[in-house]
Design a protein around this nucleic acid. Sequence first.
DNA 1: TGCCAGGCCCTCTTTAGGGCCTT
Length: 189
Amino acid sequence: MPTESFAIIDFETSGLSPDRGDRVTEVAAVKVVDGVVVDRYQSLMNSGERISSRITEITGITNEMLEDAPDSDEVMEELVDFLDSDYLVAHNATFDKKFLQSELSIAGIRRRFDFTCSMNIARRVFPAAPNHKLETLIAYRKLTNGERFHRALADANATWDLWVDMSRVAGKKKGLVRLTFHQMKSLYC
DNA sequence: TGCCAGGCCCTCTTTAGGGCCTT
């Protein structure tokens, strides 16, 4: 049976648009092999971009915290080394995809990834949820683990918890314990 | 003070528009 590998990824950033100069401030990834978490990666990132008080209010990440953080080239090299698989999952994947592509381009790294959006899948698996924000879905499904939201590793862990829950709910409809990554992808993407 | 961008999804659609979600 072939090994199935992918990673959950989450970025904290200085804003909403890399096209407007916004940069990554923190990245985290959770590596999954055959349905089991095998490794985690997390790093703050100092791009040289100052972050606003509004962003600090949302994420808790301050300019002081970033002063001693590694630069973007170093973080992107570490991240790409960490990510064995080309398959990535993110909540609202278009956001994380555009920031990853932007940072890889700045770092001069030519690498493309295949993104799957947990939010789009959640809309189909849990159509009755109040909304499909990550924080809401975690509470809706009673998956809370006490971690704060809007930090990269906490959100990546929460997205993994949500993914496991969705794969079980979707699997149950098919008479299975849970669906694999590729089964989820083919069914909902 | 409040909004900023943009891609996906849904529908009162497809020659479009608006809401959602990410920081």
